[in-house]
Amino acid sequence: MWITSFGHSCFLADIDNTRILFDPGSFSSGFESLTGLDAILITHQHPDHVDTARLPALVAANPGAQRWADPATAAMLNADPGQPRWGDGHVGQRFEVGPLTVRTTGGRHAVIHPELPVIDNIAYLVGTEDRPGRLLHPGDSFYLPFTTVEVLAIPAAAPWMKLSESVDYLRSVEPAKAFPIHQAVLSSAGMAVHNARLSEMRKPATEFTVIEPGSTVEL
């Protein structure tokens, strides 16, 4: 599996020569030039996860890519009749992307504040029949999967979380490998602190790797 980071929550996963892009949002850059995508997956409607200004060009450059989003985002994107349709990735959905199976699960965004409404958030579990948890992108949630996870994209900083919660989530999932996402809200110094704590406090069986924006790493 090869992971290319575009910053924040956006990355390209190349698994068995199948290219899936997650969360092309406003805090990310570099995804605009991508072609040859097999799928574009969006976890939820916040602009840092779906940049509606840059999304049409990305879709036009990848006409063969499947398009899936959480129910609220799919409804928003499908409101424009001039744009290609997006699939409604409701909880329990399952679809094939090349040799891979994608399961949509979770359902709700983490609580930011009790006075703010909780929106849709889909966690994407990507794998095969014999290895269903090859990759998990939980979006803005600490969704605990129903299967063993090989690679976890772990939310490492957000207005809705404490660092201790991210550490506990990493320990609870206990993936073979993990890399941090959702860190555009941090300064460089803050990012270094968060990543150091996650690396130091992970369980021994988990390999923790930081992927710099613009870099590609094999996991």
Rank of each mutant, 00 (worst) to 15 (best):
A60V: 14
A60K: 04
A61E: 12
A61W: 06
A61V: 09
P63T: 03
P63Y: 00
G64D: 09
G64C: 03
A65C: 01
A65N: 06
Q66L: 15
Q66D: 15
Q66K: 13
Q66Y: 04
R67T: 05
R67P: 14
R67Y: 01
R67N: 01
A69N: 08
D70Q: 02
P71E: 09
P71V: 06
P71N: 11
A72C: 13
A72D: 14
A72F: 11
T73H: 07
T73E: 11
T73A: 14
A74N: 12
A75S: 05
A75H: 06
M76Y: 10
M76G: 01
N78C: 11
A79W: 13
A79H: 11
D80F: 06
D80A: 01
D80T: 03
D80Y: 04
P81T: 00
G82A: 07
G82M: 03
G82C: 00
Q83V: 06
Q83A: 12
Q83R: 04
P84F: 04
R85M: 09
W86D: 11
G87P: 01
D88G: 01
G89S: 08
G89D: 04
H90N: 12
H90D: 14
V91Q: 13
G92A: 04
R94K: 14
R94L: 13
F95V: 12
E96H: 01
E96I: 09
E96F: 03
G98R: 01
G98E: 07
T101I: 14
T101F: 07
T101C: 03
V102R: 03
R103T: 12
R103L: 14
T104F: 06
T105D: 02
T105C: 13
G106H: 00
G107W: 06
G107I: 02
G107P: 13
R108H: 14
H109L: 05
H109E: 11
A110I: 06
A110Y: 01
V111A: 10
I112L: 02
I112Q: 10
H113P: 04
H113R: 05
H113L: 02
L116W: 07
P117V: 10
P117I: 11
P117N: 01
V118T: 13
V118G: 08
V118R: 13
I119A: 15
I119F: 05
I119Q: 14
D120K: 00
N121C: 15
I122N: 13
I122Y: 06
L125P: 06
V126Y: 12
G127L: 08
G127A: 02
G127T: 11
G127H: 07
G127M: 00
T128P: 09
T128K: 05
T128N: 03
E129W: 07
D130E: 15
D130S: 15
R131T: 12
P132F: 01
P132C: 00
G133Y: 09
G133H: 00
L136Y: 05
H137R: 10
H137W: 11
P138Q: 08
P138H: 06
G139L: 08
D140C: 09
S141I: 06
F142M: 11
F142Q: 09
F142I: 07
Y143A: 12
L144D: 01
F146R: 04
F146N: 15
T147Q: 11
T148Q: 14
T148P: 13
V149S: 00
